[in-house]
């Protein structure tokens, strides 16, 4: 069985995250880059299955600038067998449609039984890529799984929604996305880190995948406006005069935070 895990390098959420107002792209120099935690959890799902079943191959796939190679290699250090890195300056700023087309082409090229993604990256926060990939790959899709069971020919799990949890399952091949309810990833150990440099690491361009980033015949999104994040204002201070709890509750409801 071949499991492809989509991994993404993102600006560390502990740091300041900024957009470049000229290009509209994430300012990668503004903070440290890390492997998105949800990617690590997705990888953990795959590695846990690889550890419990025979003949499971875990492949990492990422579309990211060349500088992300070290971050992707962390996934190899954690235990993935190989990595495919689509690094092409022409793909910088790709919208979700172009990203999905490119990733789907790479997934087809690599071959797969199961694709695992995070439900939502911490930078783009699109949350639709898994569904787009399933559509393009013409396979079933189960999103936002908070538990996952993989067998030789199916995948099933729990899909949490706002008001209830559903049991879902699909025959393989399939695409799933997982939530942060799934366990933290294992830490890579020194042996894994040393072994990572010897594992297959393929770097591809859009042309290698038959993708034309500037293809204007395909519908794509355009950015119409971008603005600096408004400066932080002083917070609301609630003084407790015996009704502090009620006031806090009202504040939360009013701001739809409850």
């Amino acid at each position: 069985m071949k499991i492809i895990v989509l991994v993404k390098e993102v600006p560390d959420t502990y740091g300041e995250r900024k957009l470049d107002l000229e290009t509209g792209l994430a300012d990668r120099a503004a903070s440290e880059s890390v492997l998105d935690e949800i990617s690590e959890r997705a990888l953990e799902v795959a590695l846990a299955h690889a550890g419990s079943a025979d003949g499971v191959e875990v492949v990492l796939l990422s579309m990211a600038p060349e500088s992300a190679a070290a971050t992707i290699r962390k996934g190899l250090a954690m235990g993935a067998a190989s990595a495919v890195h689509i690094a092409d300056p022409a793909l910088a700023g790709a919208d979700l449609g172009l990203t999905a087309r490119t990733l789907a082409a790479a997934i087809r090229r690599t071959g797969f039984d199961l694709v695992i993604t995070g439900n939502l990256s911490t930078d783009g926060s699109g949350g639709v890529l898994a569904a787009m990939l399933a559509e393009l790959l013409e396979v079933p899709n189960a999103t936002a799984l908070s538990s996952v069971e993989i067998t030789a020919d199916s995948v099933s799990g729990t899909r949490s929604t706002d008001d209830r949890a559903m049991r879902v399952s699909a025959p393989l091949p399939a695409v799933i996305s997982i939530t942060e309810a799934l366990p933290d990833a294992r830490l890579p150990n020194f042996k894994g880190i040393m072994a990572a440099k010897k594992k297959p690491f393929e770097t591809l361009t859009a042309a290698d995948l038959g993708i034309e980033p500037q293809d204007l015949s395909v519908a794509s999104s355009i950015m119409t406006a971008i603005a600096e994040k408004p400066p932080r204002t002083a917070g609301v201070k609630i003084t407790d005069e015996g009704d502090g709890g009620t006031k806090i509750a009202e504040f939360l409801i009013e701001n739809r935070l409850a």
Binding site: A77, L187, N189, I193
Partner: peptide
């Protein structure tokens, strides 16, 4: 080197978490 950076990062994660 990138490899030593990865090793040190793993130690840092361990020290921060544990």
């Amino acid at each position: 080197t990138e490899e030593r950076e990865a090793l040190i990062a793993a130690v840092r994660e361990f020290a921060d978490a544990e």
